[in-house]
């Protein structure tokens, strides 16, 4: 699972993380993995719901020192 791109969305409040992620994933090819860093707690459930509705897969998520990390594979 190697990310082809990392998106820093730390410090951004809803809705900006999803807006940026959506834009970033549009530039990737199907099967590519995008790594995302965020600090907005709300991003967690929104990201999972957004990925599902967009046909992408949330491969993994972690939380360390208040930074949430996500890996999403483009569908």
């Amino acid at each position: 699972m190697e990310a082809v791109k990392t998106l820093d969305a730390t410090g951004l409040a809803c809705p900006m993380p999803i807006v940026k992620i959506k834009k970033a994933i549009q530039e990737l090819s199907s099967g590519d993995v995008l790594e995302i860093h965020a600090t907005d707690q709300g991003a967690k459930s929104d990201l999972a719901a957004w990925a599902k509705s967009g046909g992408h897969e949330l491969l993994k998520d972690t939380e360390e020192d208040g930074v949430l990390k996500f890996w999403i594979q483009k569908g």
Binding site: P15, I18, V19, K22, D46, A49, W50, S53
Partner: peptide, 11 residues
């Protein structure tokens, strides 16, 4: 009256 549509579906 309340209805739901997540913001990310409206972008």
């Amino acid at each position: 009256k309340v209805f739901n549509e997540p913001y990310f579906n409206l972008l």
